[in-house]
Design a protein around this nucleic acid. Structure first.
Lengths: 210, 210
DNA sequence: ACGAAACATGAATCACCTTTCATGTTTGGC
DNA sequence: GCCAAACATGAAAGGTGATTCATGTTTCGT
């Protein structure tokens, strides 16, 4: 009747256990983001966390399990940052702006997100897929609502969500992750917004009969 | 005075050598795409290629070198497929259609491209960056020309290239790589084209004075 | 403040992988 | 057809890192 995976460790039962587990997770995030999964050894993670090697196996069954947890955690955090930022917007265009701003800010603050997600394809395809699915369905339902209100043109919200997410992802990689500035240049952001605006804006041809 | 990297092996001097090298490259592409870089051992590659373990080191200095060559090769092939497909188009919109069609077709035929490029971030960041830079600068110069001809609106061609490339990449991942069909569904393709058309189309506001 | 369960430790084990090298085989220019 | 260079081989050396476990320490409910 347990909901837990049979291969995972029981949750910590004491404050000390929880603390150690959290330190291991944080260290793992750093190590995975810095040297990548192949080079990330358990020894490295435990050394950075400041715990003994054997302690790792008290909390996790292996490298893949801790990787999955790190991905899930990052995914949850970026989604929350984006939805929080865009929820207060008065209209769809502003929601797009706020959501993307939050995404780029998160990327700047947590480069680990990109670097780790991109490795997940092989380490843990399911968890990677879940991450993108979760982001995009949230995005798509926002578009759907705006479409109902006539704010944007009629289109398949899922396709639009994946396409726009992809645009943001590569722009973020190029101008946030690969530049030391850490913040997206305003002109780049504005250009991206123009593109998105153009892609979503209702057009005269929308109402055509044939 | 040599142009070669000091760490790379000399090119094969006989037909047999060239054949063996090619088999190793093909095997490496398969192994990297199937099990990922971390799990890809030289033993596995040589076994799939049908050569002895030691033979590998006759042709490559190590795992990273053969990985780089595989990435470079895939990158060159996809760029050629895309530019060939779009070069004959009469206008920009058709060039977009043809280029993206070619990209999705290549993805369907060589899933290795995605799977391998995504791992390159850590294995070989320079080579990954080169791949995206090369694709996007080709794309951007096409947009630049169309902009000069007034076919599309005034915008930063680099930002547009990276954004549209990203849109194509995620759409390809979701509907080509992750679906067994292997071919992008027509409605999805058409939706993507509508978005791109909207993003690039000249708008009345383009000519405004302020 | 007691004691049982939870937690932490790190040396030792085990499995696997990279790389080398001495030796044998094939190739292709002459 | 000869032979020097190129190529292929696989056993073995040398590492590295994942995982286990017997033992010691801390926590926390009572």
């Amino acid at each position: 009747m347990s909901v837990e995976e049979s291969t995972s460790r029981p949750a910590p039962r004491t404050a000390r256990g929880a603390r150690t587990r959290a330190r291991l997770l944080q260290a793992a995030e750093d190590v995975f983001a810095t040297v990548g999964y192949p080079e990330a050894s358990i020894v490295r993670i435990t050394e950075l966390a400041g715990v003994a090697l054997g302690t790792f196996y008290v909390h996790f069954t292996g490298k893949k399990e801790i990787f999955d947890e790190v991905v899930l955690d990052l995914s949850r955090r970026v989604r929350q940052a984006m939805s929080e930022a865009s929820s207060a917007a008065p209209d769809r265009l502003q929601a797009e702006r706020d959501g993307f701003r939050a995404f780029f800010a998160f990327t700047a603050e947590h480069p680990a997100l990109y670097r780790i997600i991109r490795q997940a394809e092989f380490v843990s395809p399911e968890v990677m897929r879940t991450h993108y699915d979760d982001i995009c369905s949230g995005y798509a339902s926002g578009l759907d609502r705006a479409m109902g209100a006539g704010e944007i043109r009629q289109l398949d919200p899922m396709v639009a969500a994946w396409a726009l997410m992809g645009a943001g992802e590569l722009i973020g990689m190029r101008w946030v992750l690969w530049e030391e500035g850490g913040q997206i240049p305003d002109p780049v952001f504005e250009q991206l917004m123009r593109l998105i605006e153009g892609a979503l804006a209702p057009t005269p041809t929308d109402g055509e009969s044939r």
